[in-house]
Computed example of a mutant assay.
Amino acid sequence: MGIAELSDLLVWAAATTLAIAMIAFAVDLGRRTGERVEARDASRATVGAAAPGLAPGSTLGDAGDGAVPPAEPRRRAAGIAMSTTSLGTALLLVAIVLRGLAAGRTPWANMYEFTLVGSFIALTVFLLLNLRRDVRFLGAFVTGLATLFLVLGLNVFHVAATGVQPALQNYWLVLHVGVAITATGIFTVSFVMSALQLLRDSREAGSPFLSRPGFRWLDRTPTPTVLEAMSFRLNAVAFVLWTFTIIGGAIWAEDAWGRYWGWDPKEVWSFVIWVVYAAYLHARTTRGWSGRRAAWFVVVGYACVLFNFTGVNLVFNGKHSYSGLS
């Protein structure tokens, strides 16, 4: 077995591990929802008798400073999910390194490698966010997307680990493409937050579909305002990186092709992404756009990111066609 084959095997292992993590995160979210409902019903049933001094209709949470809220039960499924996510991320990192060794270059020169590294960045962002605050509610969705991307990469985008064209044999491959992948990974996590914001907001607004008991897990996510704030911070960071991506790409284009801008499909759609996220940041900070309108901006922006990665590479012919399948 060669290094390239070992890399592919580790990607499969990472996808399998992340699928297990996704299931564990989903189980944790479901159990927390059920425990919350049971605890709420139990507290209402024991009003007055179990806690003297409580007024009729009040709960233990209304007893004042003297009341001790029940301790949150140990979240074993969440612990398993975080451990398997860390393991899957580590396996993916090793696979990426081996891919680079097999190809003898930086391992992000085509769609398959972009998929691997972009998924790794999204997972890393998720794990780093958990060091600052508990965002495990994102786990099922981030690991689910990463699993989907890795399986698609292995079955649709996979190419042999070979060298690159002379135009790509440049340090800008490390900078320009590396920064673009980092921005894409951050955009992925912020998209998950905005999608959850829309779902939670619709549930709170009384959506007939989302008001069903099967969507009680949305009650365990932060409020739409909190989700929007977290998404905004991530998008601000990713936007700066995407700005550098466009500037770096223009500099590289002048060095490789003798012009800074040529309206190549990849250049055009990269600029479209920049415009969408710039409009989002501007509207939210200066025009007071918030709530659902801001969240839909993020969803549209991420749709453009996905189209730039898939549709532009597979449908249009241009100077960036070598970044697709070969």
Rank of each mutant, 00 (worst) to 15 (best):
P56H: 05
P56E: 12
G57H: 10
G57E: 10
G57A: 09
G57D: 11
G57C: 08
S58C: 02
T59I: 11
T59M: 04
L60P: 00
L60N: 06
L60I: 08
L60T: 06
L60C: 00
L60G: 13
G61C: 00
G61F: 09
D62E: 06
A63W: 03
A63P: 00
A63S: 04
G64T: 01
G64I: 01
G64R: 03
A67K: 00
V68R: 04
P69M: 09
P69W: 04
P70S: 07
A71S: 11
A71I: 05
E72V: 14
R75L: 12
R75H: 13
R75E: 11
R76F: 13
A77I: 02
A77Q: 09
A78W: 05
A78K: 14
G79P: 03
I80Y: 14
I80L: 15
A81R: 12
A81N: 12
A81S: 07
M82T: 09
S83Y: 13
S83F: 15
S83V: 15
S83R: 14
T84W: 13
T85P: 08
T85Y: 10
T85Q: 12
S86N: 07
S86A: 15
G88V: 14
G88K: 06
G88L: 11
G88F: 06
T89N: 10
A90M: 12
L92Y: 10
V94Q: 05
A95T: 09
A95Q: 05
